[in-house]
Design a binder for these strands. Structure first.
Lengths: 224, 224
DNA sequence: GTTCTAAATGAATGACGTTCATTTACTAGA
DNA sequence: TCTAGTAAATGAACGTCATTCATTTAGAAC
């Protein structure tokens, strides 16, 4: 992971404008947006706040960006770059999948608003995401998987990861039945027993689920 | 599934107003909202469109609703009611989980914008959701599961289901690498092989993943 | 008939994201 | 050195939202 600035479209060269100290470009905007998000969450990421943080007027951003969505995509690429997919080159498939999934979920738990976007976004716009897929696919191939089973396995894992990342942002007491108690003995019993373990239910669920899905996938995999 | 009107707070009785034909109430608003969504998707669900569909001014809605979010929660309850969780009373656990998960995903694939909401919403506000959890928990209990493992298993399954529902809304060609071809032989090979099967990759992934996670959970389950 | 009150009104507000005509100031070519 | 040409920034709009609020309306209760 961790690439250079990597602007797929050549960065605009200093040309003109006002007595500006710097000229906006993709990298600058994306970094500023990420900083804003890091400081105050996604609700503080507005075009005017972003512009202000760059000492520029909101409309100036539109010389470099088509829409706010595009900025979200830039952020997504940077964030995705934090996912460690080198593990597929060093670990056996099952361990690599587990390690990869853990970092993947942890990172996107802090960027939940990106998830509905990513799930629907063509990968063609994100070279780094493609690189990640390549490394994962290589891991499956090396383990002898049938080619046609690889994409579904990756997508299934990602679905679980994204769902778990969303879940990780839920409040701790999300399952508290409140006043609606009485008719739900099995659920309440399970809830109490889970509570007694002292574990975060989201974490317990993610790890149990991850083990299950990885084992399950490997158990049913047909090799070439 | 399928309950009566079920307004937890008593419905406001006809009291006064204008020469209105009907008085707004929770059920009426929720149904109108759902109808709007069914007709034009979530982007068409605005407070003024909703008000117009009820022949009322937007501000009138706020006599019955705290916020648009609350309307979304009402919709969520109705939608959740469509998930069939009676299967746990008739089928063995593994089959019941599969059947339940399939309807769960299919239904929420048509209501993706609800997912980020649900994942974070306290269940205390939704009696029907609690009822569903009770049925699922009962299924696990009946199969002899350790109580403390039940909640994590349910949460893991739900995470996978929600992630898959989001994924189901993605465009068919989401994985098309576009111009970024060349350095990704393993991924492209896997993609081509998957394409050749003629299956929707989202569907293939969901079914493969579901089988894997259910088998994996049952394989590692410790019973009482 | 007077009072009480739930409900509806419509005008106004304040965030947003986004557009556009206009201006600014650097660069390249004559 | 002068002159276009042009990337970039400006600020004043817009349109679309959700939401608020003072005011009005008209049944119900006594």
């Amino acid at each position: 992971m961790n690439h250079e600035p990597a602007s797929s479209t050549a960065a605009p060269r200093r040309r003109a404008g006002r007595p500006r100290s710097v000229v906006l470009d993709r990298e600058l905007i994306a970094r500023a947006a990420l900083k804003l998000v890091a400081a105050g969450g996604y609700s503080t990421l507005t075009m005017s706040a972003l512009a202000k943080s760059l000492s520029v007027s909101p409309s100036a951003l539109y010389n470099h960006v088509e829409s706010k969505q595009e900025i979200m995509q830039w952020i997504q690429e940077i964030v995705m770059d934090g996912v460690d997919s080198t593990v597929f080159e060093t670990l056996p498939l099952d361990e690599a999948l587990m390690a990869w999934a853990v970092t993947y979920r942890d990172i996107f738990a802090g960027h939940a608003p990106l998830i509905p976007l990513i799930a629907v976004l063509p990968v063609s716009g994100s070279p780094r995401t493609l690189e990640m897929y390549e490394k994962v696919a290589a891991g499956f191939t090396r383990a002898g998987w049938k080619q046609e089973d690889i994409i579904p396995a990756i997508v299934a894992l990602e679905s679980f990861i994204f769902g778990s990342a969303l879940d990780a942002t839920a409040p701790l007491d999300i399952f508290d039945p409140g006043e609606n108690t009485g008719n739900i003995p099995n659920f309440e019993g399970a809830l109490e027993a889970q509570r007694a373990t002292g574990r975060h239910s989201a974490d317990a669920a993610f790890h149990a689920g991850l083990r299950a899905i990885v084992n399950g996938l490997l158990a049913t995999s047909r090799t070439t």
